[in-house]
Every structure is written in structure tokens, then in C-alpha cells.
């Protein structure tokens, strides 16, 4: 499978935007469509795009995280978020809502649900990553001179 200049270039352009979009979805999920799942899935889509363009090597290069770690920390984050309220005499997963006026930044609305959502997103990303690693094959850089590093 030959690589494609057009795909490589566009994917690189889109990648960051997709990540940003994912973050946005994650942060606004509580008030607009979105949330941890969709956020994670969009990150996953972005990573998959890199995979489609450059194979598993490119994914590894872009995201040098072990998917296991991502899955594990994601799950640990979510469960920790759930467990913490127990220590404060509340029910499991009873999310706190912190509203504070922070100087010039204005009102800060922060629900601990966000952390839970972050955990969710982590797991989703980790899953997509692990799927790609599992099924992935290497794509050679054959026919892709634009990927060669310029000699210093």
C-alpha cells in the first residue's frame, strides 16, 4: 500500500483540530452535546486517521503512550472520582459542584463529573489505541519522499 501525499498532509492538518474538538466536546459535554465518550471517540478518530495515513508506526510515534497505561489510568481515574465522595460522607459518585469567582477570569464552574468524563475519555482513547496496535500492521514509507527528514 502506497502512501498518499494528499492524505498525509491533510491528516496532519486535521489532527490538531480534531484533538481540540475532542477537548471541546469533553469540556462542554455537561451543557452541550458531547461528553467523555464522544470526546474520546473523536480523539480515537484522529488517531485512526494517523493510522490510516501512516500505519501503526506513525501512531506510536505520535502517541508514545502504552495503551494499557491509558486504559488503566482512565479506569483508575473514573473509580477514584467515584470513591472520593465516600470519604466526605457522601454517596459513591456524588459529584461535587465547585463554583468560584477566580479573579479576572470570571466565574469558574467545575463539576467533579468532569474528572469522571476525563477518565471515560481516557479509556475510550486507550481502547482505540489498543485496537489499532492489535490489528495494526506496518505501512512502509515506500513512495513517500515527503516524509524523509531533511538533512540538517
Amino acid at each position: 500500500m502506497r502512501r498518499s501525499l494528499i492524505l498525509d498532509v491533510v491528516v496532519r492538518l486535521v489532527f490538531h483540530s480534531a484533538l481540540l474538538l475532542a477537548l471541546f466536546l469533553l469540556f462542554t459535554g455537561h451543557n452541550r452535546p458531547g461528553g467523555g465518550f464522544v470526546g474520546g471517540l473523536v480523539v480515537g478518530a484522529a488517531i485512526s486517521l494517523r493510522y490510516v495515513a501512516g500505519g501503526i508506526d506513525e501512531v506510536r510515534q505520535v502517541l508514545p503512550l502504552r495503551p494499557w497505561t491509558l486504559l488503566g489510568t482512565g479506569l483508575a481515574t473514573a473509580t477514584t472520582t467515584a470513591l472520593v465522595p465516600l470519604a466526605f460522607g457522601r454517596q459513591l459518585m456524588d459529584h461535587g459542584l465547585y463554583e468560584r469567582h477566580v479573579g479576572f477570569l470570571g466565574e469558574l464552574h467545575l463539576s467533579t463529573a468532569l474528572f469522571f468524563d476525563i477518565g471515560v475519555a481516557q479509556v475510550v482513547v486507550g481502547m482505540v489505541l489498543l485496537l489499532l496496535v492489535s490489528f495494526g500492521e506496518r505501512l512502509p514509507t515506500f513512495g513517500a519522499p515527503w516524509l524523509l527528514r531533511r538533512q540538517p
Binding site: 459535554g29 451543557n31 452535546p33 458531547g34 467523555g36 459529584h95 463529573a113 471515560v120
Partner: peptide, 12 residues
């Protein structure tokens, strides 16, 4: 729940 997106509040 502190959120306007009811479905998301339900979910998280």
C-alpha cells in the same frame, strides 16, 4: 447535576 445537557448529566 450542574449541567444543561440532561443526557450527559444522566450519563456521568
Amino acid at each position: 447535576g450542574g449541567g444543561r445537557n440532561v443526557v450527559n448529566v444522566v450519563l456521568v
